[in-house]
Write a protein that binds this DNA or RNA. Structure first.
Lengths: 194, 194
DNA sequence: CTTTCCTGAATGAACGTTCCGTCAGTTATA
DNA sequence: TATAACTGACGGAACGTTCATTCAGGAAAG
């Protein structure tokens, strides 16, 4: 037995993701997280300094999986349009099939926890991180067309509709089928053309 | 609200809007609301059954003012494109200049409080409410072009970018000037064309 | 005086965090 | 190998804090 079973930390992380997504940070008492992970309350504090640290750890975990999923089958040889649509479709598919991850990220980014992180991702171009495919694609688009497309416009027309439609799909008000997904991706590309 | 000072309820409502927007529902204790409104804690419970009722009352207040602001200068005689852009610009302007209202609405809609309300607004076409200008315009667009544009796509491409860019503007990461506002409105119209 | 309005200390529930006893697994001793 | 001593992961009762809500009583209005 290792000092700290790597398994138990993982179990806590998964249980926390589920609880946070379903009930929100504030309505997920540590006692409830413990029950959901089938673990004593004290054990959570063995693996994570406090509740905040747990929330950040869940984010890190979710974010890295999302990055991976979005970049899947990415082909830099395709046209900018095809790349764009591929990324959007990947993004929607992944989040549609991982509603817990989506709800968690929404909460995280719109809370004091993630208000910095959000833009660090796009406005800095940091080293030692895997290059964000959306950022590279945007740079690509700007270079090809000499149009001066502002980054905030690109982000708004790209992620805005995705987030909006995912919310509606998750709340059960909208049936987000393959056709609608393709339509969203195509429309968001049209929005960027001039 | 029976026989009670009209004024004091209003003061509480405004103070609550400010506090909720700045600190969130969960970090706005009733004691703090009372201090901010310069009333006793008990008085809040004279005007509102409990904290939840207060939150719903703030929503009703904010929502009605927003509806009014968006419909300003609305001219049904203009082209669908011009109408669309006018509505979007109105919406962005109002929310940009009323950040408390925006932050409150964001919180409200993405909390258990407003998960129903949100879509009641669009998916039902209820009587005895003032007609939603976006809904009428959408019906208009669908009639003119015989394209079968699904409502969820329209909503996503219309409100998605607006919400996204407003978030960034509010967090100080983006300078949402008149040019960008026009660009967003124009892009969202382009997204709907086929 | 009677009634209405208002207050903030008091209340109890719920929460995050701590702390210590328990015990399975590991090492030391013979 | 058998036994004793040690170690640190683990659980959950207990603690202190914070919150929404209440209520007894004071102030104002009539």
């Amino acid at each position: 037995m290792p000092k700290v079973s790597q398994n138990k930390a993982e179990i806590i992380l998964q249980a926390a993701l589920k609880q946070f997504a379903e009930n929100g940070f504030h309505c997920s008492p540590v006692s409830q997280l413990a029950i959901c992970a089938d673990v004593g309350v004290g054990s959570i504090y063995r693996y994570f300094k406090d509740k905040d640290a747990l929330i950040h750890a869940v984010f890190k975990h979710v974010d890295s999986q999302l990055q991976q999923a979005v970049s899947r089958d990415f082909d830099a040889g395709l046209s900018a349009q095809k790349q764009h649509i591929q990324l959007i479709v990947n993004l929607i598919y992944y989040l549609k099939e991982h509603p817990h991850e989506f709800k968690f990220l929404e909460q995280y980014y719109s809370s004091p926890y993630g208000s910095e992180e959000k833009h660090a991702k796009f406005l800095r171009s940091e080293i030692n991180e895997p290059p964000n495919p959306f950022v590279s694609l945007f740079a690509n688009i700007c270079q090809k067309n000499q149009q001066k497309l502002p980054l905030p416009l690109y982000l708004a027309m790209t992620f805005g509709p995705v987030i909006f439609v995912l919310r509606d799909a998750l709340s059960g008000h909208v049936d987000l089928d393959d056709v609608l997904i393709e339509q969203i991706a195509a429309a968001s590309w049209r929005a960027l053309e001039t």
